[in-house]
Every structure is written in C-alpha cells, then in structure tokens.
Write a protein that binds this DNA or RNA. Structure first.
Length: 920
RNA sequence: GCGGGCGUAGCCGAAUUGGCAUAGGCGCCAGACUUAGGAUCUGGUGGAGCGAAAGCUCUGUGUGGGUUCGAGUCCCACCGCCCGCACCA
C-alpha cells in the first residue's frame, strides 16, 4: 500500500482531465440537460475561503447530477469591471486592464486547484470587448424599446467613489461596498425602467427560492395600495398625494411636502421665505445618513401657503419637513395626525389641529386633546361626511370597507382615483467611472441624443489614458469627440454602465462566449436554458438577483429569445414560461466566520500612571497564576502599543513604551508588541482582524480533496459558522481512511455461511448509505451526506479487520464508497478508481442506486415504553402485526416489573418501532 | 418599532417531520505503538446517583406553562442571539 500523496495525485488528475476535456459540455438533445450555475467572482486577486465554500459544494452537486445521467453545464467566468481596478491604477500606476487580467490569470489557477468541473471553453470575462460589446448591445436594445431613458433626478452621489449609485447599492445612507456616506444630488442620468416590471417581479410562484430572499425582494419593491388625491393651492397648482388611507381624508388637517418638492417655491409666502430657504439649505446639506439619524424629534417649517382639502373644502396649511421624502410616492403627503403616528408627533410639535375620524371599537369617542398617540386600529368612521358610520378594519387596500367606500366615492366625484405605489425606483445605471462598459450613446449638438450606429459598435474603452481618481473618459478628447448619424460633430457619452449590468446577463454569454451574431447562440440557448440551479451569497438579494430577473423579463419582451424558443419547439420542448425567470432554483450558502482565538496570557509589571499602566516588562506565560504586583490576564485587544488585558479585577489598559521588554517564549529572537496575539471573537473574517483563512495554504497542507470535504462537512451549508482549524483533521483522516480502504487487499477468511450473513449486513449499510447520500446531495445537505459516508467508512474498517464478508460484498462496498465520494473528493477517488483497474474515469460512472430489498432487516429492535418511558427493547420481525407487537411488548422481560399490580389502561402500538403501555 | 429565522454536549452539528435525544466530526480521557508525539491505532465520553461488575434509576434540547399515551419537534408567554427593513405616506 502506497502512501496517500495528495500533491502528485491532484496535480496529475487536474492536468489529465483538462487534456482529455473531461468536463467539456456539449449540446446533446438525446440527454436531459442540467444548467448549474454559481455566482461569478470579482477578480480581486485572491480567492478566500468563502469562494471555496460557495463553489465547491455547487461543483459537487453538478457532479452528482452528471453521474445521475444529466448533461451538465457548469461554467465559470469573471465579473471583471469595477472600481478596485481603477484604485489600483491610481495607487500603483498599473492600467486597470493589466491589473484585472493578471488577477484573472492567478485566480484561474486557484480555481483549477479546487478540482472543479468548470468548462473553461465557456469562460466569459465581462471586461473583454467581445463581452461588453453585447452589454452595449443590450443597452441600445433597451433604449430602442423605451426601457433605457435619460432623466434628471435626485440621485445618490458618493464623494469617495466619485460616482452616482443605484438605490440598491446604498444601505442606511452609505455605499454598500465601502460604507462611506452618499449625498443627494440633482443630476441627469441614464435609468432602466425596472418599475415597469414591479408587479411581475412580485410573482415568485414558479421559483424555488429561499423565503428570506423572496421577502426581501417583496419588501424592496414595496407595493402599497391606496389612492391618489389632488389638493389645490391658492395659486391653482395641484399637489398630488398618495395615501394608503384615503378613508382618513376628512382628518387631513395639514400637508407636508419634502423640502425639495418643486411647488415649495410658489407656495412660500414672503414672511416665511427666509425660514423655508434656511430649512431647505440644511436639509440639502444633510446626507441621507444624517437625515435618518435625526429620527426622534420632528423638524419642519410652515410655508405660509394653504391648499384645499378636496373632500371638505377646508383650507389647510402646507408645511415642509424632511420626514417626507421626495423619493417616495409623490414627495408630498396629506397629514392625518389623529391616525398616523408621524403626523401626530409633527402636529403636537407645532401645535397643529388634530381631528379624529375613527371611533375606536369598544371605546369612548376620542377627544383630540386627550390623545397620546395616533389611533390606527379598527372602528367606525366619524366626522367624515359621506362615509360616516362605515366600518374600518385593519385590512389594507380595498379589503378595508372604509377604504373601498372612499375610493368609490372619490372616483365618482372625480376627486381622486385608486392608485398603487411602489418603493422601487428605476435602476440608475450611469457611473462616472472609466472601468465599465461604455454607454453607446452620442449627444448631438442640437441637444438630442442618439445611439451609436450598429456598425460602429462596440464603443471601446481607450487604453492610453491617465488615472488620477476621476474617470479619464470625460477628459480624453480622442474618446469623446465623435460624430452623430449625420456626420456632424457630437460628444460621446462618457459615463459607463453599472457593473451590475454586466452580471445581469452573464449566464447567457457562457452558452457561447465566442458567438458573434448576438449575445448568445440560440441553438445553445434552446438546449441549456433556463438555469436549473443557482448558488451564491444572500447579500445579492435586492441587487444582482433583482436586476437579473428584470433583465430576463425585458429580454423576453424585446424578443431576444424568439429564435431560441422556436428551436426549443422544433426539438419538442415546450418553451412556455421558460424565459420568464433566469434561475429556477436558488440556494444561498451561509458565511464562514473567523475562528475564536484565545489571547496570549500576559504577565505585566509596571507602574500606574493616570488611568493606565505603563509597562516595564511584558511576558507571555500561558500557565501564569495571579502574582503580587503584577497584572496577569488574557490579552483582549491591542491598538498599536496599547494593550487591553482582562485581569481578575477587570479590564486594564497597559501602555508598552519602546523601553519595555517584551518576552514571548514561543517566538524566537527579539520580541515586540506586534507579535502578541489578542483575543478574537467569532466574527466575520477580515484582513484587518487577522482572522482570515487562506485556502491556498490549506490545500498545501491537506490537499484540495480534504478542504472540499471539510467545507461540506463542517457546517449546515445554508447557515455557515465559525471556522475550526482543528476540525479539518477529521476530514483529513477520513480521506486517508478512504485511501487505505481503496488500496487494501481484502481477503475473506470466513466460511460460506458466516460470509453470507456478514455480507448481508455490510451490503445493507452500503445501500442505506446510497439512499441517504443520494437524498442529501441533491438537497444541499452535504454535512449529513458526508456523515453517512464516514459512518460507512467505520463499518468498512470493521469489516476489513474482521475479514468475514465475501470478496464480492467488499468490492461492492469499496466501489460504492468511491462513487458516492467522487463528487466531493474528485481526485483521490479517481486515483483509487484507476488503482482498482478501471480504464475510464470514475466521473463518467453512473451514480449508485440502492436496492430497496437490501435495506430491510431480518429483525428490528422495537422500543417498549411504559407511560411514555423506554423500559425495554425487543427484537421483532419488521413486518410484525399490531397484535403480535403488543403481545411481544407485554411479554417483554423487564416490562413485567413495571406493569405488575397495575391496570393496563391503554396500549398504543406503532409497529415495528414502538409500543407504549399506559398503566395506572 | 415592523418582518423573518434560530436557541440541542466543552465546540461544529444530527434527529426519517409527534415515537430510542445527541448520528458524524472536533476536543477530551484511558490504553497500545514509539527515542519522541501536535503521527497512527483501540476503547470510552451529557449530567447526577446506586453497583464489585453486567447493569439499573433519576434527570436532561434557552425559561415557564399547555396539548398528547408520547414533545427537541405542535400551541401560548417570556428571555437571548442573528438577519432583513425602518419617518414608505
């Protein structure tokens, strides 16, 4: 038996698979297809353990599907446009393209070391002109169909990134990538009309997606039902408001506009102008972030203007306040202080009138003065003219009788209409950056815009440009000087597209990355589409995953799939519904967190100075007990030369001056403060915390097969959890054991009868394992699947040592174990498979099937309970009748003492598992 | 504040959907081999108690209650943690 040499085995098979094209995927209508997709990485330069965690289980599942007889497509590529490349250009004076392609090259080899079955001939790189020409093509198509449009709007501007961002990319007023604040700016930008698809995007019926993702998308789209009503100002201008509670219109005692609302100017009377202007200036200067922080106290100013409440002709004052957002609804509200908590607070703050219009069920009629908060519960309408007495419930929209009655009344009187409002805004896709796909548009001298002619596509990014932190496109005449369709001088659009645009269609490019007549080859599309299973991180819930769904729906409506659908039908495949959604099944992996680490135990001498101790000596001693005059405890945190030590008396801050001596026995040479290890909690991995795990090093120490196995074994995949550097040893031992089992020379020493019985037991284990692993691998439950394989390993170890089973049973066990493990640990199983004398690859073998007949046992153990507690166990045949089971239970030896002298009240039998005897 | 999820051993985690709680792994303990062990192999390992031992009894899934012959699983209340949304009109 040779030793398990993972290095040479893994290199050998990776080379051979590639040379033989083992993972090439070709259209074959005779076989069922399976398109497995995992989110494409950004080429940052290095894969971290999270990439392995996302990709290798997806690879394992794709491999299972292949062994199950599917023709599997499992491609890979790079989401290669983006800001880090430009930052590298500024900081290291290297062109973004060069930086990106060098990273890609390094990451390709890291991907190879995973041993994944990526079909490299289908690789797509989004920053390559052969790719982004189609990103441009999509933009132009969207423009022609009225989905892409240019508009002036308040947008999120990031000073740090020097670009605008989409709403989805701003979280709590901060850029989601860097956490830097954004400000609101009025700018003319390109948008995609994703809101046209809002209702369709709320449909998830045909999707097998995680509930939280569907919920997040639903919340993000934010559909609410209500009515739109116009209030008329003294100048005759209409202020449109959207409300979900039109039934409370009679209680609307004032209006509030967003400070940026266009009618503020004309509404404001002279004596209030200064206050209004001041307030607007403050609001404009606030970042979105600050605006949210000022949560509690309501602020605002009166414009001096009035508008007419259309239902009762009351003149009501119009205020401005920053709790009303221009970006939601119409940017103006009717305020109903009696029944809306925000309006209530505002009214109390500024002494505005409150008129209750709901009489709460089971309570006294409300008095405006006595109210302590807005009433939002059920009741009957009062003070509300035509709808007085109508019941109001907590239901939303027309399901609420009072709302339905009001909408009908409003529409009949032509005062308003039923309306649906969405929180979702159109997708802002312009970016004032260089490293992205150019927007293929031209600004004419006459102020109009037109798309670049087809024969002049793609617009290529100029290479010879300088990087200083802003996009060079706007300052490079060779790029922006162009002509329009009539040959007149014109200026090229210098903004590029959001990189989410590139990733909104990449899985189509994988189908035919070299195809020149369209974004994808319809022949390939007809066979492979749609994606059957998609895996990746949940952080893309309302960005990539929402954009991707929108993109496919827009593509469908623009006829991009027409030819593919035709071809599908020619091959007898029903195309209906297959081009409505990109990813039928979606699963999110969890996150691997950093490992908990104990800090060094320190013994410190020094003197107290103010609220800290200045150290003279610092010594690491894991065994140190309390010592007089010394500070002894675990190092919890270190910032430069300041240490936080958890001593018996509490946290102590210790300053370590240059002059102090630092002694770390385990670290040779002169020691200094930076070598001390501080405590780490379980938290997200990050370089700054020093708790990252480098997959390359793990592969170096244990081999890719072990790393893959461990990643799939140690966590519930959809949950993730803290890394455990000891735990990987268990997987390493498992792979080594498999190596030993696979290379063992087995000889049976038993007589025929013993062998038959032992073999039956082993085969039962084998076939049970097949059933378990088969189920778990398809269901993304790798941890329990591998646990089953480890259990089989244990059983086989026993069989090997006992030598009782027949040679045939042993061979079946070994081969089955290898096949079941092949998707998880592809190299070692391939090597062992070859060692067993097989000429072909184990990865071309078919997936094992279990024989139900072998699963049944001759006897099973039945639990006998008395009053619900297990008191004995009896061996019985699995097909025992209920009566026989009860008889066996009552006859069981140890049951007698528990039933003696008592009355059996009831017997519950669940043969062959359990009998419960109830006595009193 | 609203919505969703979770809580099982020293740790990561199982539990066929209401039927033997703790599979598998890590760690730990004991033993074997060894110059050595952070290698390998064998066995043990929720807690408490009884027993020379085989074993037996009690107890145990965040806390308290409920339904049930039977609850980690279902229901109610509470505590804690995580995630999403958050002045959304």
């Amino acid at each position: 038996m040779s030793n398990y040499d993972f290095k040479s085995i893994e290199r050998k098979w990776q080379d051979r698979w590639e040379a033989e094209g083992l993972y090439r995927s070709k259209v074959d209508w005779a076989k069922p297809k399976h398109y497995a997709l995992t989110m494409l990485p950004y080429p940052s330069g290095d894969f971290h353990i999270g990439h392995w965690y996302a990709m290798t289980p997806s690879d394992a599942r794709a491999r299972v599907m292949r062994m199950k007889g599917y023709n599997v497509l499992f491609p890979m590529g790079f989401d290669a446009f983006g800001l880090p490349a430009e930052n590298a250009a500024v900081q290291r004076n290297v062109h973004p393209a060069k930086w990106t392609y060098e990273n890609i090259e390094r990451m390709r080899s890291q991907l190879r070391s995973m041993g994944a079955m990526f079909d490299w001939e289908r690789e797509a790189v989004s920053c390559d002109p052969s790719y982004y020409q189609w990103t441009e093509w999509f933009f132009k198509k969207m423009y022609e169909h009225g989905i892409a449009y240019r508009d002036k709007a308040m947008v999120n501007w990031s000073e740090t990134l020097q670009t605008v961002l989409a709403n989805e990319q701003v979280i709590d007023g901060k850029d989601e990538r860097t956490g830097q604040p954004v400000v609101q700016k009025l700018m003319e930008q390109w948008f995609f009309a994703i809101t046209k698809y809002a209702d369709e995007l709320l449909e998830f019926e045909q999707l097998d997606w995680p509930e939280p993702i569907k919920t997040m998308q639903t919340n993000w789209i934010g559909r609410s039902e209500g009515a739109e009503v116009s209030f008329v100002t003294e100048h005759g201008d209409e202020i449109d408001v959207f409300t979900t509670r039109p039934d409370t219109l009679w209680g609307a005692t004032f209006m509030v506009l967003a400070p940026e609302h266009p009618l503020v100017d004309s509404l404001t009377v002279e004596e209030h102008r200064q206050a209004v202007d001041d307030y607007r200036a403050i609001a404009a200067g606030r970042s979105e972030l600050e605006r949210m922080e000022t949560e509690r106290e309501k602020t605002g100013v009166f414009t001096g203007g009035y508008a007419t409440n259309p239902v009762n002709q009351e003149q009501i004052p119009v205020w401005i306040a920053d709790y009303v957002l221009l970006s939601y609804g119409t940017g103006a509200i009717m305020a109903v202080p009696a029944h809306d908590q925000r309006d209530f607070e505002f009214a109390r703050q500024f002494g505005l009138e409150i008129v209750p219009v709901i009489h709460p069920s089971g309570a006294e009629a409300p008095s405006a003065d006595a109210m302590e908060e807005a009433y939002v519960g059920p009741g009957r309408m009062i003070n509300s003219g035509p709808i007085d007495g109508t019941e109001t419930t907590e239901a939303k929209g027309r399901a609420n009788p009072s709302i339905a009655a009001t909408i009908d009344w409003l529409e009949q009187k032509d005062l308003g209409s039923e309306a649906i409002n969405y929180r979702l805004r159109d997708w802002l896709i312009s970016r004032q950056r260089y490293w992205g796909a150019p927007i293929p548009m031209v600004h004419r001298n006459d102020g109009g815009v037109e798309p670049v002619a087809d024969d002049r596509l793609p617009v290529i990014l100029p290479e010879d440009v300088e990087f200083e932190g802003r996009s060079p496109l706007a300052t490079t005449p060779a790029f922006f000087e162009t002509t329009d369709s009539h040959g007149r001088p014109a200026r090229r659009e210098t903004d590029t597209m959001d990189t989410f645009m590139c990733s909104s269609w990449y899985w189509f490019r994988y189908l035919s990355p070299h195809y020149g007549d369209g974004p994808f080859d319809p022949e390939e599309a007809a066979y492979w589409l749609p994606v059957d299973v998609y895996t990746g991180g949940a952080e893309h819930a309302v960005m990539h995953l929402l954009y991707a769904r929108f993109f496919v729906k827009a593509m469908r409506d623009m006829g991009v799939f027409a030819r593919a659908a035709e071809l599908m039908k020619e091959h007898g495949r029903e195309a209906t519904g297959l081009f409505d959604e990109p990813f039928l099944v979606l699963r999110n992996q969890g996150q691997i967190l950093g490992e908990e680490r104990r800090g060094d135990r320190l013994v410190v001498s020094g003197r107290q100075q103010g609220n800290r101790v200045v150290a003279t000596t610092v010594r690491v001693d894991e065994a140190a007990g309390p010592e007089g005059g010394m500070i002894v405890g675990e190092l919890m945190r270190r910032t430069e030369n300041l240490l936080q030590i958890k001593a018996d008396t509490g946290l102590v801050t210790v300053e370590v001056p240059e002059s102090a001596s630092v002694e770390i026995p385990l670290v040779a040479g002169t020691n200094d403060v930076s070598q001390l290890r501080h405590h780490l909690d379980v938290e997200r991995m990050s370089k700054s915390k020093g708790n990252t795990v480098n997959p390359d090093e793990l592969v170096e120490s244990y081999g890719a097969d072990t790393v893959r196995t461990y990643l799939m074994f140690a966590f519930d995949w959809e949950k993730g959890g803290p890394w455990d550097s000891q735990g990987i040893l268990g997987s390493y031992r498992f792979i080594q054991d498999v190596w030993k089992l696979g290379t063992a020379r087995y000889e049976s020493t038993a007589d025929a009868e013993t062998a038959a019985q032992a073999s039956r037991a082993l085969r039962r284990s084998v076939h049970r394992t097949v059933r378990k692993v088969d189920h778990d691998m398809v269901a993304f439950k790798w941890n329990t699947g591998i646990a089953a394989l480890m259990k089989l390993r244990n059983t086989m170890n026993e069989s090997l040592h006992a030598g009782m089973v027949s040679g045939e049973a042993w061979d079946e066990a070994v081969q089955t174990l290898l096949k079941l493990l092949a998707p998880i640990a592809p190299h070692v199983t391939e090597e062992l498979w070859q060692g067993l004398g097989h000429a072909g690859s184990i990865h071309l073998e078919s997936w094992p099937q279990w024989d139900p007949g072998l699963l049944v046992e001759e006897t099973v153990t039945m639990v006998v309970q008395v009053n619900g507690k297990v008191r004995d166990r009896v061996d019985i045949p699995p097909d025992i009748s209920e009566d026989d089971a009860i008889e066996a239970a009552l006859a069981a030896e140890r049951i007698q003492s528990w039933t003696e002298g008592k009355t059996v009240r009831k017997v519950i039998a669940r043969p062959p598992k359990l009998v419960n005897i109830v006595v009193a």
